[in-house]
Computed example of a mutant assay.
Amino acid sequence: MIFLRYILFPVVPVYYLVTWLRNRLYDLGIKKSTAYDFPVICVGNLSVGGTGKTPMIEYLVTLLKDDFLVATLSRGYKRKTEGFQLANKDATAESIGDEPFQFYNKFKNDILVAVDANRTNGIKQLRSIDDQPEVILLDDAFQHRKVKAGFNILLTTYSNPYFKDVVLPTGNLREPRSGSKRANIIVITKCPNDLSDAERDAILKKIAPETNQHVFFSSISYSNNVISSNMTKSIEALEDFTLVTGIANATPLVNFLSEKELRFEHLNFKDHHEFSKQDIVELNKKELIVTTEKDFMRLKQYESLQDKLFYLPISVVINDTEKMNGLIRDFVKTKL
């Protein structure tokens, strides 16, 4: 795969030019974007792969849900339905996608969860319901330029920041690095807990943020417990188990569990893996399974796994929570 990417390097300038031109047409107003007079916050990235969008959306939900009626809007990647869908008690990972299903399960009494590949239509549909949301959070919509979000949060990982990358197909960037200038906030995600001030300064120098941009650093905080559909266990109490992951980068999770000196085998599937019947047959042979919350949403439907399937919750820790929360709250208040 890596060799193929290098072979395709001559395509990089073509991809760069096409995506740059598309953005330029939007910037000049030749291609039209829809702006809104209420708070629309976009969380996205420049690269393919996992940068931590799901926990960031959950961070924003937790920040805003007690004071405002919040809705999340995702495209519903790999769902089996089409068009606009508003999550309800009959929703599944197949009907709305695994990440939105995770949002719904965690916050169903507090927020609205919707999916639509056409974000403009999704926003229109959300605002047409009787109990319309005051704030809409767009999940993975940074390149969806037909919607002009009032506030953009751009995520990039510590291990593979966008300023060290190139566009597809040789690199991982969906668009040129210059796209970062659209962000109000840039968050370097999945940082080590011991990140030094000197290293932060070096990263800031590479990013060279505009005067209106703010840069934050975040890390992952893992829970001390794993959770199933009907019980909770301490991580320290786990003995031999099977770790099942279907995410873009499982390395931080594997490192965390290894540092705990836990004994486990790791079944590592590709991101958004659709578990087959044979996969479930094999998993049924395992005595104890620990997985991510996103994978748990896809696997919990299988009754045969109910008593052995647990997920490890995670949360986002921001280096300057007060400042970041203040910026987001100030934006919401000025738009309402």
Rank of each mutant, 00 (worst) to 15 (best):
E175P: 00
N212A: 14
I227W: 02
L238Y: 05
S178P: 05
I227H: 10
T156M: 03
H214R: 12
S234R: 12
R200I: 02
G150L: 04
K233H: 12
S228F: 05
K205W: 08
L195P: 02
S219E: 10
F217L: 07
S159H: 14
V167D: 09
I188Q: 04
L173W: 01
F217D: 07
I207H: 06
S159N: 14
D197K: 15
E175I: 00
F217A: 08
S228V: 03
T232W: 02
I227F: 10
N172T: 14
A208W: 08
K148Y: 01
N152W: 00
I203Q: 09
V187Y: 04
D197Q: 14
L168E: 07
L238S: 01
H144N: 08
E175W: 00
K181Q: 14
C191M: 00
I247W: 03
S219D: 06
Y158D: 03
P209A: 06
K233A: 12
A202M: 13
G150W: 00
F151Y: 11
K164P: 07
L243R: 05
E236T: 13
D197A: 12
T170H: 08
P252D: 04
T245H: 00
N152Y: 03
Q213M: 05
A248Y: 07
K206W: 02
T170F: 12
E210D: 14
N172S: 14
L238T: 01
I235Y: 08
N249C: 04
V167A: 10
S219I: 02
Y162S: 11
N172M: 13
A198K: 13
L154E: 01
A250P: 09
I203G: 08
P209N: 03
S180M: 15
V215N: 07
F216D: 07
V244I: 12
Y158A: 06
N193M: 09
A237P: 02
S178M: 13
K233C: 12
N172I: 11
L154F: 05
V226R: 10
L204Y: 04
H214D: 14
L204K: 10
R177K: 15
K205G: 10
A250I: 07
T251Q: 15
V167I: 12
R177P: 09
T242R: 11
L173Y: 02
T211V: 12
S196P: 01
L154R: 02
P169N: 08
A149S: 10
D194V: 00
N172F: 11
P209Q: 05
G150M: 03
L168H: 09
P169A: 10
G171M: 03
F241G: 05
N212I: 12
S234T: 12
S219W: 01
L173Q: 02
R145F: 07
P192R: 09
A149T: 04
R177H: 13
Y158N: 06
F151H: 02
V166A: 11
N224T: 11
I220P: 02
S180H: 15
T251A: 15
A237F: 08
V215K: 06
E239D: 13
D201V: 10
I207E: 09
E239K: 15
